[in-house]
Nucleic acid binder design. Structure first.
Lengths: 227, 227
DNA sequence: CTATTCAGTGAACATACGTTCACTCAAAGT
DNA sequence: ACTTTGAGTGAACGTATGTTCACTGAATAG
């Protein structure tokens, strides 16, 4: 290929004015290739394959680079996997951050939270596919990294509940236990959401309903929990 | 290799008396090789690898047969995977059957149930490793087969609770929803149990404790649930 | 203007892979 | 006794894999 980028002499005016053309071309291009490799891996997994079944060569092929280039960005496949865990972790945390910003609707909060979550999962299909696919299987190191992200996520959730005055009578430890349970249930629901054949409104309603009822049950228990 | 099995002429007496030697040699030997292939696959996964990362050749190698022999038993790897789902499903159901036979201890039932479950998971490490590893990722067909097993398992559990008079005020639909939640939590705990470095009594106690508290919370909610 | 850096290249390598095929030879059927 | 069956064999095939290496050439630094 060799993307013949034209010289594009930078006029001092343009640079000073708006920083438009080839501002950091060197490091920026490298980062873009790295991102391409990660996206290529996620895309391939989007077709229903596990990370462990991907080969280095097909990833570089999908990213439009030669196999040897891979090593300029990652020592091996495990390192790529860990980068994807990090990337997915960001997506996970952003969900929490948005919920924090929005606040929760006072009534029917569970139903609408589930609805929002469902949309979010569908919008970030590849990341949730990666998380729920690799959190149980595959390489040990990747699995543990994901469990770590989940724990962090759950702890943040516990902190948020404390800060928002939800279930104020529970200790922080209990809130963490509760959050862990909620996170497990959410991730499990994500698999269902992603496996659902689109257009099946009936199945979809049943699935969402089941999810809502499970969360309702959990919070029902939390409300009468005594430490 | 060619296991040079001696002719072993069957004396009519022996056959009539105890059915000792080469009773069904043909079909039995075939079944044994098939089992060897399945065990080989599970063993390889026991070393922390996903099913999708196994190759047909290394499975036959570990089973002590030539690659071509594989096709005498399975059309392809997916079919092997489905056989493993079936096998693991049996292990799962046996847990329920034993619980049914034993009955539940009246007090501290949750703690002792968790303890029993932990032992069971450790004793059937490979099956639980397979289930929790492939239930989220890997091939679509295998994943759905596992989810099916899980649903069946949860439904049986709901039936058992109904039969044992546990939470009699709940509808069968609610019991199924509850069971689904419990199963999810159990499988999630299985991953933790299997990942736990042995000898770490402290971590182990914390993990078991967390598991117990999550179940307690769930059943607390179930007790005050109103349909 | 010149020298250095380094992301990406392309070829080469040894190995491993899935699948096929004609075969052997003991057990099962007649 | 004789024929048929079929699980397991061993060789061969084309293709894909991970990794290495010296290389090129544009973006940067001096």
């Amino acid at each position: 290929m060799t993307v013949r980028k034209l010289p594009l002499r930078k006029s001092a005016a343009a640079v000073a004015a708006l920083d438009i053309d080839t501002p950091e071309s060197r490091g920026v291009r490298k980062q873009r290739t790295k991102t391409n490799l990660q996206s290529a891996a996620l895309d391939l997994m989007g077709a229903g394959r596990g990370f462990a079944s991907l080969s280095l060569r097909e990833i570089t092929r999908a990213a439009g680079v030669v196999p040897a280039s891979f090593y300029r960005h990652f020592r091996d496949m495990d390192e790529l996997g860990l980068a994807l865990v990090e990337e997915s972790g960001v997506t996970l945390r952003r969900l929490l951050r948005e919920a924090r910003r929005t606040g929760l609707p006072p009534t029917h909060m569970l139903r609408s939270s589930v609805s929002i979550y469902k949309t979010y999962v569908e919008q970030h299909r590849l990341h949730f596919l990666f998380i729920s696919g690799e959190r149980g299987g595959g390489s040990t190191v990747i699995r543990k990294a994901i469990r770590n992200e989940e724990t962090h996520f759950a702890n943040e959730m516990a902190q948020d509940m404390r800060a928002m005055g939800i279930l104020p009578e529970l200790s922080i430890g209990t809130l963490q236990m509760l959050s862990g349970l909620v996170v497990t249930t959410m991730i499990n629901a994500a698999i269902d959401i992603l496996d659902l054949p689109s257009g099946q409104a009936r199945l979809e309603r049943e699935m969402v309903d089941n999810f809502v009822r499970q969360l309702r049950l959990i919070f029902l228990g939390a409300r009468i929990w005594r430490d």
